[in-house]
Design a binder for these strands. Sequence first.
DNA 1: AATGAATGAGACTTCATTCAT
DNA 2: CATGAATGAAGTCTCATTCAT
Lengths: 212, 212, 212, 212
Amino acid sequence: MSQGARPALQSRSRATRDKLLKALECLLRERSFAEVTVADIAREAGLAVGTVYRRFENKDAFIPVLFEIYKQRLDAFMGSAGGVVVEPEGGLKTVLRQLTEQSWTFLTSERGVAREAHLYARLRPDLVGEEWDALLAASQDSYGTLIDAFSDEIKRPRQEAAEMLSYHFNTALTERALYPEDGVGSQMTVSDLDFVRAIADFAYGYLVTEAD
Amino acid sequence: MSQGARPALQSRSRATRDKLLKALECLLRERSFAEVTVADIAREAGLAVGTVYRRFENKDAFIPVLFEIYKQRLDAFMGSAGGVVVEPEGGLKTVLRQLTEQSWTFLTSERGVAREAHLYARLRPDLVGEEWDALLAASQDSYGTLIDAFSDEIKRPRQEAAEMLSYHFNTALTERALYPEDGVGSQMTVSDLDFVRAIADFAYGYLVTEAD
Amino acid sequence: MSQGARPALQSRSRATRDKLLKALECLLRERSFAEVTVADIAREAGLAVGTVYRRFENKDAFIPVLFEIYKQRLDAFMGSAGGVVVEPEGGLKTVLRQLTEQSWTFLTSERGVAREAHLYARLRPDLVGEEWDALLAASQDSYGTLIDAFSDEIKRPRQEAAEMLSYHFNTALTERALYPEDGVGSQMTVSDLDFVRAIADFAYGYLVTEAD
Amino acid sequence: MSQGARPALQSRSRATRDKLLKALECLLRERSFAEVTVADIAREAGLAVGTVYRRFENKDAFIPVLFEIYKQRLDAFMGSAGGVVVEPEGGLKTVLRQLTEQSWTFLTSERGVAREAHLYARLRPDLVGEEWDALLAASQDSYGTLIDAFSDEIKRPRQEAAEMLSYHFNTALTERALYPEDGVGSQMTVSDLDFVRAIADFAYGYLVTEAD
DNA sequence: AATGAATGAGACTTCATTCAT
DNA sequence: CATGAATGAAGTCTCATTCAT
C-alpha cells in the first residue's frame, strides 16, 4: 500500500468519492482506521469494493485525504471563529480561554477525523508528511501572532513560546477530546469546562511567569 | 483474540515468559505491537510459535503484561528517584523541573514499552483497564503529595491541580518523548532541555497563578 | 470470455475497430496480450472502455482478429516478395536462403503480432482454430510448389518434405525472431545473418540428402 | 510476486513441498501455470492455501523450482541414456537419430514440466535466468563433443555447428512434443517416428553439406 | 454510438491459532 | 513441555464486463 488518491473530476466521481469519505468518517466513530476494512467502507457507502479502488489507489490513500478534510474543517472553523485576537479587551487570559474553548469545541465535534489525523501522524508519518507539517507551521504562526498582540504581558522568548503553545494545545486538548473514554483523561473528575479553563491557564501561567 | 496471560509458576516457564517479553520489548523498539507477528516474537526469543501459546493465551495477552512491566519500571524508577519532594529547598519551580526531567529520562529510556502502553490505553482500553487506572490514580496521588508540600505557593484547588498535573505530564511529555521523529513535536526547534523546562514551567505557571 | 468480434459495417465503427487494433498492436510491442488490460487498449486508442465492447464481444475476441491481421500481413508480404521461386537460377540452396531471409525480415518487423499469433496458437487453440490451420495449410502448399520446382535435386517424399519444411521454418525462425532476448536463441554468438543462412542450410541439407 | 522458494529441511516440510510440486505438475497437464491458482495447487495437494506460502514465498516461486526439476530429470535421463556417442558404429546419421529419438522420448514423457520450462523461459526470463542459461550451455557443450567425434564428416565450423544443433533440437522437437494438439505441428500427417527421423536428418544434412 | 463509473467474482497473500509429532 | 508445520478466515487488490447517462 502506498500513496495516491485518484482524481475525480466528474460530478459522479466526486459524489462517489464523497460517499466513500462520508462512509469512512462514519465508521471511524466506532473503530480505528486499521480496524475498518475496504469492504466495510464500500458497504457503508452502498458501493462495490472495486469502486473504492477507482477513487483511491489503495486503502492507505484515504489517510492523506482524511488529513485534507481535517485541515479544511480546521481552516473553516478557525476562519469563522477567528475573531479571537480581534477582541483582546479581556486580556491575555480571556483570549487564551476563548481560543481553547473554540479548539475544544472543534476537536470534540470532529472527533473521528481528528483522531485518525493525530493517530496517523504518529503511526504512518510517511503518509501524511507535508500536510501535517504545514498544519503545525500554520498553528505556530497563529500563536506567534497572538504572542505579538500581548508582547508586554509575555515573559517568554517569542519563538519558544509559539512552539510551546502550539505543542501544548495540540497535545493537551487532543488527549481528552479524542479519547474521552479511555486514555489519560478518562479518570478525571473535573468537568469539561474546568478542564478547558485549566488547559488555558497552563498556557497563561507559562507565558506570564519569568523564564528563570 | 481475548484476555489471558497464563500462570508461569515453574522456573523454566518463567524463563520462557521472560524471554518472550524481552524479545517483544526488543521488537517494539523498531515497530509497533500491531506490526509485530507472533512468529516474530518467537523467532526473536529463540522459541517455537507453539511455545508462545503455552505462556500467552493469545497475542493480545501480551498487552496487559506489557503494562505490568511498564508499571514496575515506573515504580522502580520513581522509587529510586522519589526523593524529589524530600528536598524542596529549591522551591516549587525547581522541584517541578527536577520531576519533569526525571520523567523525561524515564520515558525516553523506556520508549518502546511506554509507547505501546500509551497507545493501547487508547486503542484497546479493554485490554488494559485496571492496570492503567491504578497507574493514573497513583500518579495523581503523588502529585497530590507534591501539592501539599507547596500548598502556600499554589493557588489552585488541590483535587483539580492533582488531576491536571497528572494529565499535563502524561500528555505533554509522552508526545515528544515517545514519538520524537513524527507527531506534534517533530517540528520544534527548541532543545530537549528547553522543552523539558518549558513543560515544567507550564505546570508552575498554572499552579501559582490565580484561578480567576 | 468467449468468441466473437462484432461486425463493423459502418465507416465510423470500422475506424474505431482499426484504432483499437492499432492500439493493441502498439501495446504488444512491450507486453504480452495477457498483460494488456482492456482499459489499456481503450486508453491507447483514445476511446472509452465501453466502446471496446461495442466492437469486440470480449477481450478474447481480439485474438482471432490479431490472427487475421497476421495472415493479411503475411499474405501481403509473401505476395510482394513471392517472386522467389520464379527466379530459381541460383539453385535450391540460394532460393531457400532468400526465402528464409524474407521470412526472417517479416517476422522481426511484425514481432508483436507474430508473437501473440504463435503464442495463442498454443495457449488458446480454441480461439484460433481455423485461421491458423488455413495459414499452415497455405504455408505447406507454397513449400510444395517450391519442392516441385526443384524435384530433381530433392531426395525426400513430397508430402513429408512440404510438411517438414513448413514446420522447420515456422519453428526455427520464430524462436529467435520473436524472443530475441530470452528463450533458446538468446545465448548464441552467431550473427543474425549466419543464423538465417544456417537455418536455410538445415532445410537444404535435409532435402538433398538421402532419406535412408 | 518475486523470487524465493523456502528451505525445507525437515522431512515433513520436504514431503509437503513434494506434494505441492507433484500437484502442480499434475495440474500443468491440463492448464498452463498462469491458469492454475494457488488455491488449485493447495486443493490438488490436499493442503491449505497457507501451507503453500510456508514453502513458497509466492506463486512465482514455483517457476524456478519447476526449472530445477526439469533440469534434474534431463540430467538423469541424459545420464542413463548418455551412451549415444559411445557407440558410433552406425555413423553420424544413426547417432543423430538415436539422440533425437531419446530427446523426443524425454520431452513427451515430461510434457507438463517441460512445457512450462520452455514457456516461462520466454514469458518470464527474470524468474529463470541462470538455470536456463546453464542448461543451454550444457546442451551446446554436449553437441560440441558430438561434433568432435565426427569431425571428419562435418563440414561446418565447430562453434556455429554446436550452437545451431542445440538451437535446432531445442526448438524443432519441443514444438511438436510439447504442443501436440495445437501449434505448428498439429496439422502434420507424418508419424511421430518419421517426424523424429526428419528432424535428425535436418541436422545431418546441415552438418555434412558444404557451408557455401 | 460513446462514455466511463460501477460492479463483483476471484486472485494473491498474511498471520493468529491449532495440533500431531 | 516444546516444536513448527498446517490451517483457513479474512484482507487487499485487479480487471473483464455491464449499464445508466
